[in-house]
Design a protein around this nucleic acid. Structure first.
Lengths: 253, 253
DNA sequence: TAACTTTATTGATCGAGATCAAGCCAAGAC
DNA sequence: GTCTTGGCTTGATCTCGATCAATAAAGTTA
């Protein structure tokens, strides 16, 4: 690897360490410049990036953890419109704060506020970096569209199944293993999927009862029947006869 | 205007004619090259761009009309995950057909399949073009996220109100006028918002009864009370006491 | 380890919107 | 003109998931 000049603070960062991510595309000089002009930040659950700060640092690169974009309705209802994770770069340059959600950490999150100036320079000169960043934004866009489609018409169980696959697709490695990490809390999951925590809980139980998943802990799942889970996620009405949904006949008298 | 070399077929196209859009950023040579290697296509309602075609022409620029990205569930339920309109450029390069929705026209749509080769060249050399295209993709991403937020927790009336504003924001000119064009049919609108056509109909009626909008035709609205509409869109629970929701007491005997 | 706080689960009830089934109306066909 | 067709609307009923309330489990602190 040629990044001998890699500034010290970048050494442990996923964006540099993972060859597919942004900072790994930079040459020594570029990385030095970016590193020097950028600012890392460690957030804990509930911390949010405020408009004030975002105005000066509108480019957020996620090293680790889960950052959410939340929309708040007037009467207190909240929704999580998007989840950003390791490798994602959130670009809020020239984005009016109007109508834009707040960026709130869902746990410990390490981010790097990139210098817009250096970022632009790199974008103009380094085609590899440009490609990586472009594909990341495109992923964000398509992921959001997929997600819209999911929550629009699917029912609770189907949404949850889709979410499990989304987690599996996004986690590092283990893509085809049967272990899936759920990196967010039940409440957050509910807000992301547009349902209530109670419903989330019931749906997990449902999948367990039917032997499709196993939940060793709150944050970890083992998939026992991937094809069936897929069918449910795809809205196959034959499969998901909900447990306990058969009407019990009542005998009169 | 300097675009004297503008190839004939581009003259009437919004992407060239509107100075904020992609093709207007190109110089004569670039436009010529792009024009020559690209293919226009006129679609009518129901036409879809198939994977076969998209493999060779993965870059779709919308000149006019509304193109939808639809997700189809196994049992026939459909959802519209995104709407693409004038100026949008859909980039499906290297996107696996797996899990990606179909691109289907919701009416007469004029598109231009851009040559990936020339597009890449332009992206690499022309910073203005790069900026425009980047901002367009970012808009698509944020729009999709906003939309996710909308359909996740809002109720029917609120979703519709949000959609009216989305239409207003996206239509050319008239941004602050009180006339809003609804460029899609009721059915499509329902699929986009994740509700039933019947519910859409009832909600329009509701807004009319309450004097918030007026509907001279199916495709055109006049906003009579923008602040109230905004409050509803923002989920203000004080405002939207649904018409006809007061329980009528029934007198026994 | 116990005391305490926060988060998740379970159970019971209720309601917004889905669903089903007609009815309506405008545009084009015959 | 009448007939047809497709989209929209209206009304009646039913259901899934929201909501409320209580309990259990997990995480945190002393």
């Amino acid at each position: 690897m040629g990044h001998i000049h890699a500034s010290k603070k970048c050494q442990g960062c996923a964006l540099f360490a993972d060859s597919k991510l942004f900072c790994a595309q930079l040459n020594g000089a570029e990385l030095d410049a970016l590193s020097q002009k950028s600012r890392t930040l460690s957030m804990k659950r509930g911390d949010s990036l405020e408009h004030e700060a975002l105005a000066h640092w509108p480019l957020i690169a996620i090293d680790s953890g889960v950052l959410s974009m939340q929309h708040l309705l007037q009467d207190g209802r909240k929704t999580i419109a998007a989840l950003f994770m390791r490798g994602d770069i959130v670009d809020l340059r020239n984005v009016s704060n109007r109508n834009r959600g707040a960026l709130i950490a869902l746990g410990k999150v390490d981010v790097c506020r990139l210098s817009p100036k250096v970022f632009e320079d790199v974008m103009a000169r380094n085609p590899d970096a440009q490609r990586v960043i472009w594909e990341n934004l495109r992923d964000q866009a398509f992921r959001a569209m997929d997600h819209s489609g999911d929550i629009a018409k699917k029912q609770a169980l189907e949404k949850l199944a889709s979410f499990i696959f989304e987690c599996r697709n996004r986690q590092v490695g283990y893509k085809d293993g049967d272990l899936v990490e759920i990196p967010v809390r039940r409440v957050d999951l509910a807000e992301y999927l547009g349902m209530q925590p109670e419903t989330v809980s019931r749906c997990f139980k449902d999948l367990e009862k039917r032997g499709i998943i196993e939940a060793p802990s709150l944050k970890m799942l083992r998939l026992l029947n991937v094809p069936m889970l897929r069918r449910i996620a795809n809205g196959d009405k034959d499969a998901p006869i909900r447990e306990g949904k058969m009407k019990v006949l009542k005998f009169a008298g």
